[in-house]
């Protein structure tokens, strides 16, 4: 199966290990990976801040970049969701609405793709450790992916899993919210870190680079002995 990877700008620039793990994992599952070179940012930071006009230019580039893809897979629920928003954003546009629909229809978040398209529930991973999982808001509420990551994690050998208290609560990232409303964001991420600590987990796993950068950055600053990992890295462990 041919998969075009929508790596996301955060992974491309800051978390290349997540990108590598995603590629290796999908290849092991029999996929042939392609990385369209002209991909940029999905436009979400500008779009969510109200700069719709500016963000549309980036969106058009993304639609073109993935035009010939069979499947588009992203290791980020929020960014994958953004592709699903495109048809709504370009509604009424004679050229771009149809193209946006086509892109949305073939775009999947990584775990969703593995479970729903590849029909795999056990990727054969082994990961020793006590871990908890952060359910990202956009991935669960807006993209509607709830079960796939849990299904895959439950089949990882050696993984001791603990449920995160208040898991449905936002971590306080929210893109530019984290800097625009810094004082509120701080309270939110602190409560999240406190909940992670309550689980006594050694690892916090997530499927969204933005949330992980926020929670991980706070954990690191506070010097807490908790490692933050993307789900692709866990599923790629042997």
């Amino acid at each position: 199966m041919k998969v075009s990877l929508f790596a996301t700008c955060l992974v491309d620039m800051f978390q290349s290990d997540v990108g590598k793990a995603t590629v290796e994992l999908l290849e092991r599952l029999g996929c042939e990976i392609d990385f369209p070179e002209s991909q940029v940012c999905c436009g979400q930071p500008a779009y969510n801040s109200g700069y719709v006009k500016e963000s549309k230019e980036a969106m058009k580039k993304m639609i073109d970049a993935f035009a010939s893809a069979e499947y588009v897979v992203s290791p980020s629920g929020s960014c994958a969701y953004m592709f699903h928003e495109y048809p709504h954003i370009f509604k009424g546009d004679p050229v771009w609405e149809t193209k946006a629909k086509r892109l949305a229809e073939k775009t999947y978040e990584l775990t969703q793709f593995i479970v729903e398209v590849l029909k795999v529930e056990d990727v054969g991973a082994r990961f020793e450790g006590r871990a908890t999982y952060h359910t990202s808001c956009h991935m669960t509420r807006l993209l509607g992916v709830n079960k796939a990551p849990m299904t895959l994690l439950s089949n990882v050998k050696g993984l001791e899993f603990t449920q995160l208290p208040g898991k449905e609560q936002c971590c306080g990232f929210g893109g530019t919210f984290s800097v625009k409303m810094a004082q509120i964001s701080e309270q939110m991420v602190d409560e999240k870190v406190q909940h992670v600590e309550e689980t006594q987990a050694d690892y916090l796993i997530g499927a969204d680079a933005g949330c992980l950068m926020n929670i991980g950055g706070r954990i690191d600053r506070k010097g807490k002995p908790i490692r933050v990992l993307h789900i692709a890295e866990v599923l790629n462990s042997r």
Partner: peptide
């Protein structure tokens, strides 16, 4: 700049010297 408000309370990751796309290529 805008990273100031972020790094007042959290660490921000340094950009990877080898981007993902370089590794892939």
């Amino acid at each position: 700049g805008p990273l100031k408000a972020w790094t007042e309370i959290r660490e921000f990751p340094a950009p990877n010297k080898e981007r993902f796309r370089d590794w892939f290529n």
